[in-house]
Write a protein that binds this DNA or RNA. Structure first.
Lengths: 196, 196
DNA sequence: GATTTAACTGAACAAACGTTCAAATCAAAG
DNA sequence: CTTTGATTTGAACGTTTGTTCAGTTAAATC
């Protein structure tokens, strides 16, 4: 079994994942061949199978890793103790910052969900729901405390997330607006949309 | 050349497009084979080539047709003469109603843009920008008249469209909420987000 | 320097791909 | 009934797909 103890080079695995990530994001999972990934890494196609049992697992581990990352990083700045307004602002700014910094991961994370086999899909979907639940909790708390004025916490959750994730379709580092400006613009819109 | 005069059956072409639409939406353009489309229609793969020169054109015509539809239907309820607030409400309700009624078209229209060859991509992209420009115009007018309070008309355009199009990820006809209720919930959020 | 062990190559596999085309089929026209 | 012309079949094409594996290479261990 390969990769059980570090020996000769531990950089090929990551390089494969980086190449797959880039190519899947650009052309889509189904349109990318193992030979293209191998060529990008500078290796023959057969060599990839020392690092992944198959193509599907390669995709799954990218999506799974991305969601783990998202939840782990988010956990570090928990919102449970904050008032709804501050918690919401924190979530908005976190979401934008995190997603803008990982455009390829974000892109495949919801473009290629359907390319996952059912059990892999279920795993990733569960993590995504877990992330959404934090926002829904914030909105629900704010609704009950009277801080927020929304018709439906679940719909507002999905609407806010869709709006925020949309940043990735146009934002490019080094553009007209700084990340902090973008965060503030979106936070203003979210605030006005939900705060009483 | 086939299909120059109606003769024997004019329903095969539409049936092919319907099958392609359904399969592309479910599995993605690259993952769907001409043989799968043919099987769905109840015909051999070779027969498809009496109706389309190749697979790429099939996709292009689906996306192109969808965008033409969008712009044509939208034109029928122009907003130029309305005050910004009414124009915006009309746009929001139209966008939701139109998109919710065509989930497959909407899904491939922005999932499979990258599967279009460059010149086809440019055509479809142009139509999409044309649609977005109407919303941007409404927001810009409202900004200048003082009816709206937003930081940036272009960003607000993209944010609103992302939020509205997100309806398609969860809305199903016959669910808990009627279409009109959904429109109203989203209109409330948009209104609060941008109206002064 | 010899031995071990992990990493990679390069060829091969069966299956599936988009597309083509001669031959068969079928509905309508004369 | 025969002819015409559009439509479909079914096989074939060359290419590409994911994956396997015996054999080569090269680094680490003794």
């Amino acid at each position: 079994m390969a990769r059980t103890q570090g020996s000769h080079s531990d950089i090929t695995g990551p390089r494969i994942r980086a190449a797959a990530l880039k190519l899947f994001a650009k052309d889509g999972y189904a349109a990318v061949s193992m030979r293209q990934i191998a060529k990008d890494v500078g290796v023959q196609a057969g060599a990839l199978y020392n690092y992944t049992p198959d193509k599907q697992t390669l995709l799954y581990e990218l999506l799974r890793g991305h969601m783990d990352d998202l939840l782990t990083v988010r956990e570090a700045e928990a919102s449970g103790t904050l008032a709804p307004l501050e918690a919401l602002e924190g979530f908005v700014r976190f979401h934008i910052g995190f997603h803008v910094g990982r455009p390829d991961e974000v892109f495949i994370a919801y473009m290629e969900l359907r390319s996952l086999e059912p059990e892999n899909f279920a795993q990733v979907e569960k993590l995504r729901r877990q992330y959404e639940d934090e926002l829904e909790g914030i909105l629900q708390r704010g609704l009950e405390s009277g801080d927020f004025a929304i018709d439906d916490a679940k719909i507002a959750t999905l609407a806010v997330i869709a709006m925020l994730t949309g940043v990735n379709t146009w934002y490019r580092a080094g553009g007209r607006l700084s990340l902090e400006q973008v965060e503030t613009i979106y936070w203003n819109m979210v605030k006005r949309a939900v705060v009483a």
